[in-house]
Simulated scan of single mutants.
Amino acid sequence: MTAAPRPEPTARERRRWARYLVDERAEASVYRHLAERRAGEDREILLALAEAEGRHERHWLALLDGEPPRLPRASSRTLVLGWMARRFGSIFVLALAQNAEDRSPYDDDPWATPAMRADEKIHREVVRGLAARGRRRLSGTFRAAVFGANDGLVSNLALVMGIGATGVGAGFVLFSGIAGLLAGALSMGAGEFVSVRSQRELLEATEPNNYADEVLPDLDLDANELALVYRTRGMSDEEATAQARRVVEAARAADRTAPYRRPAEAAPDHEVVGNALAAAASSFLFFASGALIPVLPWIFGLSGLTAVLLALGLVGISLMSTGAMVGLLSGGPPLRRALRQLAIGFGAAAITYLLGLLFGVAGAG
């Protein structure tokens, strides 16, 4: 039984195919530009993604019976991705590409093949995997930087709002803001150093070492307590015994004139944790830069309602920017993250402002 022929495509459908065509070309270009900035496996994966987009492009060209005389512009999202890929080629582009692949237009389009719909879903997982590599490399210092900046913005805005609401002079508000900047930055830097350093030391203490390698050739092959070591690392009894026999046999076959050393079993991945000094420096500098923004109006001699409104505006823009950045890097919706950061920051400032008003009224009474 043959399938029923498809109806003749409408002009609207042909316009949609043309839009798909230019978007596929633009997305393939994004992946090629990203591949130019990478090497090894990442480059091969990105080029393979570009080739897959090329297959989709050829599908729409076939339906259109060749290159249309006029083509629409690519979507604004794809154009932004292309611009960023040509100039940056960074983790931000991959994060944006991940969001783009999450919204496939082919799911409900009867003219797209099942293979194309499957490709788009797989592409999202591939891009997410590539972005995850960059996120792991950034996780230590980036976390300290973003959270440091946000803490500085929120805590110093709340401080100057609360102090200002009591009715004190502009000079005292400025002094309080600078003191809060220095105290908070030093505290954040020291705390981040201790946190990251402690985490690295904890990981180092749990890593396998070569403490007992010199006595391995003397172990009994049948009553082999080395198997207990492998069982503590999650192997089953049978797997641990077999691994222990292999290690002891290799130790006995080695040159007995030199101490035997087992090959490294797994290299520790400290990139996930980050460098303690780098994290501390990032935390200090970004907290300070964030905490500076709320006091800028008073630094430039403003006071009263004008200074308050300007501080709120500057901090609001900064909070939304950092929130959107976190959203992009985490693969989440940037606008939602931006609004969440704004609500948290302004909520904290509102609470301290109300407390300042209460203390100011009580002091006046």
Rank of each mutant, 00 (worst) to 15 (best):
Y106T: 06
G148I: 02
A165Q: 05
W60V: 07
G327M: 06
G89M: 11
E225L: 14
E265P: 03
E120A: 15
R70Y: 14
I299N: 06
L46R: 12
A253F: 05
V229M: 10
A276P: 07
F193D: 01
V22S: 04
R231A: 10
I293R: 11
E27C: 02
T78L: 14
R43M: 03
I45S: 04
A39T: 01
R25T: 09
E101S: 02
R43K: 12
G290S: 09
A170N: 04
G332K: 15
G360A: 07
T166R: 02
E192K: 15
E36M: 09
A349R: 14
T322V: 12
L138R: 12
S283D: 01
A291W: 02
G274H: 10
L46V: 08
D151F: 02
L181I: 08
W17Q: 01
S76H: 06
E13W: 05
F92V: 15
A85P: 11
V272K: 14
A132T: 12
A28V: 05
L34W: 14
A240R: 05
R246E: 15
D102K: 15
Y260A: 12
A97W: 02
D255R: 14
L186Q: 04
S75A: 13
R256D: 15
V173P: 02
D119T: 13
A183H: 02
L34N: 05
T257P: 00
L202Y: 11
S321R: 15
A266F: 08
I178D: 04
G360N: 07
L34V: 04
E207S: 11
A338I: 06
T141W: 15
Y20C: 07
F287S: 01
A190M: 07
L216S: 06
S90I: 08
L342F: 13
A281Y: 06
A48P: 00
P114I: 09
A343P: 00
A112Y: 01
L277E: 09
P333W: 06
L46A: 12
